[in-house]
Design a protein around this nucleic acid. Sequence first.
DNA 1: TGAAAGTATGAATATATGTTCATATATTAA
DNA 2: TTAATATATGAACATATATTCATACTTTCA
Lengths: 124, 124
Amino acid sequence: MTEPFDADEQQDLCGVRCVHKERIASARSIALPAGEYEAMAALFKAMGDPNRLRILWALGHGEMCVCDLAAHLESSESAVSHQLRLLRQLALVSNRRQGQVLYYRLNDDHVHTLIHMALEHIRE
Amino acid sequence: MTEPFDADEQQDLCGVRCVHKERIASARSIALPAGEYEAMAALFKAMGDPNRLRILWALGHGEMCVCDLAAHLESSESAVSHQLRLLRQLALVSNRRQGQVLYYRLNDDHVHTLIHMALEHIRE
DNA sequence: TGAAAGTATGAATATATGTTCATATATTAA
DNA sequence: TTAATATATGAACATATATTCATACTTTCA
């Protein structure tokens, strides 16, 4: 499945030119359900912002409240709150209330792993 | 460093209200250089699109040319080419030419790992 | 050398995204 | 209950992004 395909295999498919028919069939056979690409894209998109990464990185070392995060990011609390909502909706973070204060934390270890993989990649 | 902070610690810092001073200092001490958040964000952003994920997933199981990918995604070759350029610029994929055909492949294993972590997360 | 195939790229447009501002909600203290 | 603090949220605006269209580049073959 990993070998290069010979250009002689080229055929037409659905009006699109230059196609290695078997390679496409193979790609189709291992493809994920459409919804999983969507869900993963939403997850990566959520991590695709420097400010949200700062938040996630900071939370990776301990919980923080909205004000702390706003001060740390030198951003407005409203902006941070909007970011946190996004991260919450994607189950990247969760919070606990203590009085008036909401403490946010990372939701699971996947986030940690994702960030560390990304770091390895960009540091190469 | 991971314990909840008491709200009594609250102080002002730079005109921002409600701050746990020590927690912010701690966050600052472990923060990454700004450029690394930017670079990671660019990486995650690149993976934050369903079509690009389809491409990466397909390439994860063997190299493909632009035409193959366009057929597989049922998208135009131009659109796919634009996507591939982005992925190339971020070193997620690379290509080799064989005659007129450019075969694309994943650049390293980080991409695989990133996608599988994301899958684990969304499947929970 | 010219033509065709495969791919790349710039510009333009439509959509998505992030921040700000104003306002609403929730909790505590007076 | 009222005021104050901490946070959430909707709308609006500015910027970013993805696709399309037209065109350019590169390789092969006649």
